[in-house]
Design a binder for these strands. Structure first.
Length: 427
DNA sequence: GCGATCAGTT
DNA sequence: CACAACTGATCGC
């Protein structure tokens, strides 16, 4: 607890500088309007949205980091008491408005914390982020990559958001007389709504608090709170249900579109035995869904589910890792029923592991990945957070030379026989 | 009233 | 059933 210098998306006491990647609730747990633990760094857009999420927050504590610019911090090394220079750069994470990754450089080396991110080729955002990352790294190696490993499994394959958006428009067009309900959260998926609005040349209804956020984001023309102006309404996801749709249909013909859900996992790699027995590098890693076949699924008489994701799919994670070639990777999300250490799949792409893997493969071709995983677990200096009571949800803390990041986790540690390389939760 | 945690929902 | 993101109930202060 006392050795931390920097925290990312983690809000317990003991750090000298706190970094927020984005404003979704699962990354702000512990933050509140009464925050008084010192400066909090975030992107300009996140700072702008901040008062909506935390009214009364002392905004003088916010430190805006402009995307692509290095910022220097002078921190105190807890052990020696001497000052240590740390540089940090924020890079667009393409997850939701304001979301960023943080690249840190200091005496400890180089580390990147992705927060939640999407690494898709479509659109120019990824090219810009790519250039920024490579420029920032130059020839230096990335020592640790703290990775959004939400969908770090080959069974997760889904299309670009633009393609998914096109599918939503197709669904709407094929129901010209229907009202349309789209389930969204309080932040995120704005591009989808804009795409629909532009493609159909109609406004989209949103609830008042959501309109306020959209206005802060600079979208003034495409949204309204007047029901009479449009047949397309975006509603809070928690108010989107079979019952809601059935109720609405007793008034007027209405369909619901849910841009998320997980129908993607259905097809690929059902056979777990094959998955676990296979050599990571043998897995077919390129995405199966290049074409616009029926990616949208009819989930119910009135409900369609479209795989619109703000997290990277497996092949995107792979490309990201191939680009950066980090020495080590840590997943920031552990949801144990499906959690697999990123190194299970990508250890062979990592800096030192790469050499290790090549030699190892030559010597004994049959060897599984257990040794690699074992090495992984040993290499991290980790300690558990202050013995939390709950067993379902827990945020753990990881120490790496004084830098602490959160491990956002839903610890549903059921059976499933999934390999869990990390054992730091058990103390 | 506030913050943290837990259960439950799409 | 997988997930992320969220609401609402409850508990302790």
């Amino acid at each position: 607890m006392e050795s931390g210098m920097i925290s990312v998306d983690k809000w317990s006491s003991g750090s000298q500088a706190y970094f927020l990647t984005h404003l979704h609730a699962d990354h702000t747990a512990g933050l509140s309007s009464t925050w008084n633990r010192g400066p909090l760094f975030c992107s300009r857009l996140t700072a702008k949205l901040f008062p909506c999420k935390f009214p009364g927050f002392d905004l003088s504590l916010l430190r805006v980091l402009d995307i692509g610019c290095w910022h220097s911090l002078s921190l105190i090394t807890p052990s020696s008491g001497s000052t240590a220079a740390v540089s940090v750069k924020a890079i667009d994470a393409q997850h939701c408005p304001g979301s960023v990754m943080y690249l840190f450089r200091g005496e400890f080396g180089c580390m990147l914390f992705t927060g939640d991110f999407r690494w898709e080729k479509i659109g120019n955002g990824m090219e810009i982020a790519r250039t920024m990352l490579l420029d920032a790294l130059k020839n230096e190696t990335l020592d640790i990559l703290y990775l959004d490993n939400t969908y770090c499994n080959p069974r997760y394959s889904f299309p670009s958001r633009e393609l998914a958006a096109r599918q939503v428009v197709d669904i709407i067009n094929s129901h010209p007389k229907h009202d349309i309900i789209i389930g969204i959260d309080s932040l995120g998926k704005e591009d989808l709504l804009l795409y629909i609005s532009r493609a159909l040349n109609i406004k989209i209804w949103v609830w008042p608090e959501r309109l306020q956020i959209l206005h802060l984001l600079g979208f003034h023309d495409h949204f309204t709170t007047q029901t009479s102006l449009t047949r397309v309404r975006a509603v809070p996801r928690y108010s989107f249900s079979v019952e809601t749709l059935e109720g609405l249909n007793s008034l007027r013909p209405t369909i619901g579109v849910m841009p998320s859900g997980l129908p993607w996992a259905e097809k690929a790699l059902k056979r777990k035995g094959t998955l676990f027995g296979s050599f990571p590098s043998d897995i077919k890693m390129h995405d199966l869904s290049g074409d616009s076949k029926n990616i949208a699924r009819r989930y119910h008489e009135y409900i369609y589910v479209v795989p619109y994701s703000d997290h990277s799919c497996f092949s995107e994670i792979q490309e990201f890792i191939e680009l950066l070639r980090p020495i080590n990777i840590k997943g920031i999300v552990s949801s144990s029923s499906s959690y697999i250490d990123p190194c299970y799949y990508f250890g062979h792409l990592c800096g030192t592991k790469q050499a290790y893997w090549r030699i190892h493969r030559k010597v004994e071709n049959e060897e599984g990945i257990d040794r690699v995983e074992a090495d992984e677990t040993k290499s991290a200096e980790e300690n558990t957070a202050s013995s939390v009571a709950g067993r379902k949800r827990k945020i753990d803390q990881v120490d790496f030379l004084g830098i602490r990041v959160s491990r956002v986790s839903l610890l549903r540690r059921l059976s499933h026989g999934v390999k869990i390389a990390h054992n730091e939760y058990l103390s």
